[in-house]
Simulated scan of single mutants.
Amino acid sequence: MTAYNRKTRKHTRSNLYQDITDKIIAQLEQGTFPWVQPWGSPKANASLGLPQNAVTERNYSGINVLILWGAVFEAGYSSQSWLTFRQALKLGGTVRKGERGVTVVYASRFIPGEGKKKGQFTSDTSKNPRAIPFLKRFTVFNLDQCDGLPEQVTAQSVSPDTSLIEPKAEELIRASGIDFRIGGRRAFYSPDDDYVRVPPPQAYFEPINWHRTALHECSHATGHKTRLNRDQSGSFGSKKYAFEELVAEMSAAFLCASIGIVPTVRHADYLASWLQVLREDKRAIVRAASQASKSADYLTGFLNSVPEAGSKEAASCA
């Protein structure tokens, strides 16, 4: 992607980190939280869930969730499924003429070569201090923008059964093994003692908010050194603290979408500190979204080992 510089009268490659960050800041300044889309609005035609590739059926993660959710609501698409132009052709379909795709990204790192040796690419999780992080970009199209795709690809997934929302959240918390306690008057995660405490559901005006709160605090717990080992050393009001709250907010939103709960913003009062973090570091939103996906994936991974309801192993998460 290139941008035209009026001063130099030349086309220059745009900075994707800055492009993404500018868009997120604009949305936040308008009071829109991109990880909590207005699912109940008239434009929310797509079913609740994470965006996925229509061919591989793999969910997009990190910043791509925010990018694609935003595209779904801006255009009013009815599908959360996406594919590349080549994937559409390979399936026997085509992208309609005039349709504009959405740029998604893949995070990677490049280690510069020494002397005449060529540099090498490495995983995004590389700890090599010489590794230079960068984003690869590619374009995807929503299924609503395509014609001629086979029925097995275009068939919409069944909407989540709302009767399973609360049990699924309970199962996830129980299976995670996190020390989860119900009681008290405030919700929090204690990094030092590694436990979560959340008030009882009846303490919430809308009981469904208990689940959103619980998933937010469990997302904090994934950062413990025995789990995903995030930096949780920031004190209240610090940039590190604001960044961790941003990670937990998005992780909870991703978890809610995964199990059929409409996400909401729990900490809108942190907006000013989030904006400060994003304005000072154009890579912050990308890193936060990546950490949020890792946190959500860590927790949803336990659902595969959950015992069936009614079994001897099933017990209360309290």
Score class of each variant (00 low, 15 high):
1 M>L: 12
9 R>E: 15
12 T>S: 13
12 T>M: 11
14 S>Q: 14
15 N>W: 01
15 N>L: 08
18 Q>W: 10
21 T>S: 01
21 T>K: 01
22 D>H: 06
23 K>G: 10
24 I>Q: 03
29 E>V: 06
32 T>C: 07
36 V>Q: 14
45 N>T: 12
48 L>F: 07
49 G>M: 03
50 L>N: 04
50 L>K: 01
55 V>G: 01
58 R>G: 03
60 Y>R: 04
60 Y>I: 01
67 I>H: 01
68 L>P: 11
69 W>P: 07
70 G>P: 10
70 G>C: 05
76 G>E: 06
79 S>D: 13
80 Q>S: 13
82 W>L: 02
82 W>R: 05
85 F>G: 02
85 F>D: 08
88 A>K: 00
91 L>T: 02
92 G>W: 01
95 V>A: 05
99 E>G: 10
99 E>W: 15
101 G>W: 08
104 V>F: 07
105 V>F: 01
108 S>D: 12
108 S>G: 11
111 I>R: 09
112 P>F: 00
114 E>N: 11
115 G>M: 11
115 G>C: 07
116 K>Q: 14
120 Q>M: 13
120 Q>G: 13
120 Q>N: 09
121 F>D: 08
123 S>E: 15
123 S>I: 10
126 S>I: 04
128 N>I: 06
129 P>G: 07
138 F>Q: 02
142 N>M: 09
143 L>G: 11
145 Q>K: 03
151 E>M: 09
160 P>L: 14
161 D>R: 02
167 P>N: 05
167 P>I: 04
170 E>Y: 11
171 E>Y: 14
174 R>I: 10
177 G>N: 05
179 D>S: 11
180 F>G: 08
180 F>R: 12
181 R>M: 05
181 R>D: 04
183 G>L: 00
185 R>T: 12
186 R>D: 13
187 A>S: 06
190 S>I: 12
190 S>T: 13
195 Y>E: 04
196 V>A: 00
196 V>L: 07
196 V>D: 04
198 V>N: 06
199 P>C: 04
201 P>M: 10
201 P>Q: 08
202 Q>R: 14
206 E>F: 11
208 I>K: 09
209 N>W: 07
211 H>C: 09
213 T>L: 01
215 L>P: 03
217 E>F: 05
218 C>A: 04
219 S>I: 04
219 S>H: 05
219 S>D: 07
220 H>F: 10
220 H>A: 02
226 T>Y: 10
232 Q>L: 15
232 Q>V: 13
233 S>H: 12
238 S>H: 04
239 K>M: 11
239 K>G: 05
240 K>L: 11
241 Y>E: 00
242 A>E: 02
246 L>W: 06
247 V>L: 00
254 F>P: 05
254 F>G: 00
255 L>C: 00
256 C>A: 01
257 A>Y: 10
257 A>M: 15
258 S>G: 01
260 G>F: 06
261 I>G: 02
261 I>A: 00
267 H>G: 03
268 A>T: 09
268 A>S: 14
271 L>R: 02
272 A>K: 14
275 L>K: 09
281 D>E: 02
283 R>W: 08
284 A>T: 08
284 A>L: 08
288 A>R: 03
292 A>G: 02
294 K>R: 10
295 S>K: 02
296 A>Y: 02
296 A>Q: 07
299 L>Y: 00
302 F>R: 02
305 S>P: 11
312 K>P: 11
316 S>A: 12
317 C>G: 10
318 A>M: 11
